[in-house]
Design a protein around this nucleic acid. Structure first.
Length: 239
RNA sequence: AGCUCAACCGG
């Protein structure tokens, strides 16, 4: 069962959901019984493949076998599977019933809401999780910045900006810096977007692209081109 | 052997 789980996991880590599910079928056909780790990988495969019905069936098996109790990783994979398949009511339901959940559980649900463009619900989850004493991490902030941008909630974005600085998260995470630049750009506050990118300890092609796109969207082609030149000057290659 | 995360374009 460990070998099969490792193989299934390998496929999911490369985004090959269908292949992973195929392996799972082979494993069952050989009479090998899956355990909690196997199911965690298979749920991720369902999420990748958008295989909601398959995922529901796995959910049923997990409940039947009593594997869910206090297994955070398995619960998280279940919430993520429903979220990625767009079954947000199921995702929230599972989250609420889990005996153990953590920041990753909430992050999975928040991402699901974002993917469905339910920015307001995503923002509400952010409040809920904190009310129950779960502290946001870098992934949470990145999602909430995206929600703020999509919802045009500049004030929320500024609030997150302050929090991120307080926690020193800008030092070691390019993606948060990029999400901040993108949030300001999408809210049309290009001066702030520019300020942020100047102060980042590190930035990459995605960070610059967010700023360039922001200038392009606001019809500031000259500024967009300036940024492009600066990016090249820094030795960052365009993609 | 296991869970969540950033830009642009097209569909």
């Amino acid at each position: 069962v460990v070998c099969w789980s490792a193989l299934i996991s390998g496929y999911t880590q490369n985004g090959q959901g269908e292949q992973a599910l195929y392996c799972f079928e082979c494993m069952l056909r050989e009479g090998i019984l899956p355990n909690a780790v196997t199911y965690t990988c298979v749920l991720k495969a369902c999420a990748l493949a958008g295989a909601l019905d398959k995922g529901k069936h796995i959910h049923f098996e997990i409940i039947n076998q009593g594997l869910l109790y206090n297994n955070v990783e398995l619960g998280n994979a279940l919430v993520d599977m429903y979220a990625k398949c767009g079954a947000l009511a199921n995702a929230r339901n599972v989250l609420e019933k889990l005996s153990a959940r953590n920041v990753i559980t909430w992050n999975a649900l928040i991402s699901g809401y974002l993917q469905a463009n339910e920015c307001e619900l995503a923002l509400r989850c952010f409040e809920c999780m904190q009310q129950e004493g779960v502290l946001p991490d870098a992934v949470t902030y990145i999602s909430i910045l995206r929600a703020s941008a999509a919802f045009g909630a500049l004030h929320k974005g500024i609030e997150i900006h302050k929090e991120v600085i307080q926690q020193g998260l800008l030092q070691d995470n390019v993606m948060i810096g990029t999400a901040l630049v993108d949030m300001y750009a999408k809210c049309g506050v290009l001066s702030m977007a520019h300020d942020v990118i100047e102060q980042l300890p590190s930035r990459n092609v995605v960070t610059w692209s967010a700023l360039i796109a922001g200038y392009a969207d606001t019809l500031q082609g000259d500024e967009a081109l300036n940024c492009f030149e600066r990016m090249l000057y820094e030795g960052i290659f365009p993609n």
